[in-house]
Each structure stands twice: as structure tokens, then as C-alpha cells.
């Protein structure tokens, strides 16, 4: 495939008799944000380590930025930046000194180092505390500093392992904003997360990992379509009268659940929104509001695995 910047074929990793990654075929195109999603222990980090040559491949093929990481590790690491899960720094050194060390290891020309570090630190709003020891940083600040290191390297591909885990919502949004910025700059981004909801809006495409395998792959909407079927989900708020029974009689409605004193959740094969107001009024109730619910990745995930578990 011409546009593929990351490609694995039948990639496997075993620890003794335990298969952490099984027969993985993954393709990520240039400029794409790909989300590796799945619960803890699904094999996301192991896959990333194999992409970077940080652990040995048991069998299978890896190509990243056109190289084999076991044969051309230096070229791969020059062009790929990696932010590990719960990234660590030298606590007694300042953020700037920490970055300067990796910048020199990364082979960034000396004349450019300070300029690039400043640019990266200002982009993640850490310039003000750049000369403080990293030991004084909060978890969110460390995580941002990890992202600054990625920015500083100006890589073709950025691999971010659980970039948002353990962060408060505000910092999470900030990080995701920066990641979307990077995409705009044309960087390919591979990010992993066990919090599907958090990253589903950031990713162009996601792969759902389950027990070392890529169980599902595609755009979030398409996955919802395949797994949940073409179902419209509408939430209705109404009071008085026998609203529930009336909604149930609507054509195409398969399910009505009462989810609160005045709240109902509907599933329907057709878009019934135009009929809701009339139905509620006809049953003697008062309509307070209604809206279409976007399917969430969490729902896709749980539905899919409930089905596969039942099938097995």
C-alpha cells in the first residue's frame, strides 16, 4: 500500500506460552490519527514497543516510515517520536535540561536545539516553568512535557501511549487539542487509550484491541453502524399522560426505556423525530425536549464484546 506509513503483517508477540499480541495486521496511512483502543492488558503497549524495536518481535513483519525497526532502528527512531505511558524525567534537572539531553541524543543540530525547545514548551504552555526542576511538576505537567519532547523532535510519526490517562478533564482537552494541531501540521499520530470516549473525537480511525487481537477497525461512525446496526437513538423528555405507551406505538420503534422520572430512551429503525411532538401531545402529555443520541464508542465496544462472548 502506497500511503501506509505504519504496517504490520501477522505480527505476534509471546511471553512464554502467553500470547500478548496475536496475528496483528495494522495499517496506518500518512497524516492519519489512529487510535488503538482497548482495555488494560489488550496488547496496545506491546504492539507499540514492537513498532519501535524496544522489544523483540516473536514473528511477523513490521514496517514503519519505510524501514524495518529491527534492521534500521536508528532511522526509525530519528523519524518517529514516542511518548511512553506515564513518562518519566530526571527530577533534579529542569524541564529545559531534560529536553536538551534528549535533543542531543536525537541528533538535532546544536544551533537549533534551544529554539526548538522554547517553541515546544510554549506550545504546551510550560515555558514559564521551563527552568524549574521537573521534580516539582504535577502529573499533568509531566505528561505535557512528554508531549513537548515529541513536538521538539518534529517527527513524521508520533506514537503516544495513553497520553491522557490519569489526567483531569481540562488537561485532557488541552492535550487532545495539541494532538489535533499536530494532525493539521501533517504528522501521523498513533495513540493508545483505554478510555474510548475520551479520544473518539480526536481519531480519524480506531482499532479496538481485545486479548492481543485487533477485533474491530474503522471510522467511529462506521463501527457504530456495523455493530449497533442502523438504529436511531432518541432521548425524549416529557411529563403527564401515558407518554410511554404512546411512544411505543410509533411505527419503527423497537424499544422504549424509562431512564428517569420524565426521561425516555427510544430505539427506532427510522427517524421518528418529526412525529414525537404530535405523539406526546396526543397522549395528553407535555413535551419538554428531545434529541438524537450519537452512538459512543463505549457502547460499540460493550455491544460487540457482549455479542462475541455470547456467540462463543
Amino acid at each position: 500500500m502506497s500511503g501506509a506509513i505504519i504496517e504490520t503483517r501477522a505480527l505476534c508477540k509471546s511471553y512464554g506460552s502467553f500470547q500478548a499480541v496475536k496475528d496483528l495486521n495494522l495499517t496506518v496511512s500518512r497524516g492519519e490519527v489512529f487510535g488503538m483502543l482497548g482495555p488494560n492488558g489488550a496488547g496496545k503497549t506491546t504492539t507499540i514497543l514492537m513498532l519501535l524495536g524496544l522489544t523483540e518481535v516473536t514473528s511477523g513483519i513490521v514496517r514503519i516510515v519505510g524501514c524495518d525497526p529491527t534492521q534500521d532502528p536508528l532511522e526509525v527512531k530519528r523519524r518517529v517520536a514516542y511518548m511512553p505511558d506515564s513518562v518519566g524525567f530526571y527530577d533534579q534537572l529542569s524541564a529545559r535540561t531534560n529536553l536538551r539531553y534528549t535533543a542531543r541524543l536525537a541528533g538535532i543540530p546544536r544551533a537549533e536545539i534551544d529554539e526548538r525547545i522554547d517553541a515546544a514548551l510554549s506550545r504546551i504552555s510550560l515555558l514559564g516553568v521551563a527552568d524549574k526542576a521537573v521534580g516539582t511538576y504535577s502529573r499533568g505537567m509531566r505528561q505535557r512535557l512528554g508531549l513537548a519532547e515529541v513536538l521538539m523532535k518534529k517527527p513524521d510519526v508520533a506514537i503516544l501511549d495513553e497520553p491522557t490517562s490519569g489526567l483531569d478533564p481540562e488537561v485532557t482537552l488541552h492535550l487532545l487539542d495539541i494532538i489535533r494541531d499536530l494532525k493539521r501540521d501533517g504528522m501521523t499520530i498513533l495513540l493508545s487509550s483505554h478510555l474510548l470516549q475520551q479520544v473518539q473525537d480526536t481519531c480519524d480511525r480506531v482499532g479496538l484491541f481485545y486479548r492481543g487481537q485487533l477485533a474491530l477497525e474503522g471510522r467511529v461512525e462506521d463501527l457504530a453502524q456495523t455493530v449497533l446496526g442502523s438504529v436511531y437513538r432518541v432521548s425524549v423528555e416529557a411529563e403527564g399522560g401515558d407518554v410511554e405507551a404512546a411512544l411505543r406505538r410509533l411505527p419503527g420503534v423497537s424499544e422504549v426505556a424509562r431512564v428517569g422520572a420524565t426521561a425516555f430512551a427510544l430505539k427506532s429503525a427510522t427517524d421518528i423525530r418529526p412525529m414525537i411532538a404530535g405523539t406526546v401531545a396526543g397522549s395528553g402529555g407535555r413535551l419538554l425536549g428531545f434529541s438524537l443520541i450519537q452512538p459512543s464508542l463505549d457502547e460499540v465496544y460493550t455491544t460487540y464484546f457482549r455479542e462475541t462472548a455470547n456467540a462463543a
Binding site: P73, L74, E75, K77, Y82, P84, S86, V87, G88, L105
Partner: peptide, 14 residues
């Protein structure tokens, strides 16, 4: 222990 190893070895050095 400081979790700096993977950051170092993700740089282009052996």
C-alpha cells in the same frame, strides 16, 4: 525506576 529508559532508547542511539 524513573521511567526515563524508554524515552532515552526511543532516541536514535544504540
Amino acid at each position: 525506576q524513573r521511567r526515563t529508559m524508554s524515552r532515552l532508547l526511543a532516541q536514535p542511539i544504540y
